[in-house]
């Protein structure tokens, strides 16, 4: 299974980046073969909506789980829609995260870790999950 980790650097020993959308790198690891691919996050180029952009990109890469620090509501909604599990509030190195993930030691999260600053997405399919505006 392909897991993406937001990373401050381009090595497996790099620290996890706390921000998902603006993460400088994503390290995508296939947990079966432990093959890894390093991508510089194209999302960092966006003015707004970096989290949604990153989600779209990772979905296109066939990623099934994401490990990161904080997740905003836009990215949360997008990942849910893409049926990508997200594991948040992790700090440590990328490789640590992967090991813990493989040992089932990470907790999947059920709500965004950063409050909305601008409301969230509206889905059209019955499957995706949109959230109301937080005030």
């Amino acid at each position: 299974m392909k897991v993406a980790v937001s990373s401050t650097g381009n090595k497996l020993e790099s620290m996890i980046e706390q921000r998902f959308g603006r993460s400088p790198y994503f390290i995508i690891i296939d947990t079966d073969t432990m093959e890894s691919e390093i991508v510089s996050n194209i999302g960092t180029g966006y003015a707004h909506g970096a989290g949604v952009g990153a989600s779209q990109f990772l979905a296109s890469k066939g990623v099934k789980a994401v490990i990161t620090g904080n997740l905003g509501p836009n990215a949360y909604g997008a990942l849910r829609a893409a049926k990508i599990n997200a594991y948040t509030n992790f700090s440590g190195t990328v490789i640590d995260a992967i090991e813990k993930f493989k040992n089932n030691e990470l907790k999947e999260f059920s709500s965004p870790t950063v409050p909305s600053h601008t409301g969230t997405g509206n889905t059209v399919s019955g499957r995706g999950q949109g959230r109301g505006r937080m005030r």
Partner: peptide
Amino acid sequence: FNALFVVGDTAMVF
């Protein structure tokens, strides 16, 4: 502006 997100059978507007 990343206001739209389409994956599988879901399309979302932000």
